[in-house]
Amino acid sequence: MFKPTSEAELRAMVAKNLRALRALRTMSQEDLAAVAGVHRTFVSQVERELKNVSIDSLRKLANALSVDVHVLLQP
Rank of each mutant, 00 (worst) to 15 (best):
M1I: 07
F2Q: 09
K3E: 13
K3T: 12
T5G: 14
T5P: 00
E7S: 10
E9D: 12
R11C: 10
R11Y: 02
M13Q: 12
V14D: 00
A15P: 03
N17V: 03
N17M: 03
N17Q: 10
L18Y: 08
L18W: 03
R19Q: 14
A20D: 04
A20R: 11
L21S: 01
R22A: 10
A23Y: 03
A23T: 12
L24T: 13
T26K: 15
M27W: 13
M27E: 05
Q29I: 07
E30C: 10
D31S: 07
A33E: 10
A36M: 06
H39M: 05
T41Y: 06
F42Y: 15
V43R: 11
V43I: 15
S44P: 01
Q45K: 15
Q45T: 13
E47T: 12
R48D: 06
K51Y: 00
N52A: 13
V53E: 00
S54E: 02
D56C: 00
D56Q: 09
L58F: 12
R59P: 00
K60Q: 15
K60A: 14
L61Y: 11
L61D: 04
A62D: 02
A62T: 09
N63G: 14
S66G: 05
S66L: 12
D68P: 02
H70W: 11
H70L: 09
V71P: 01
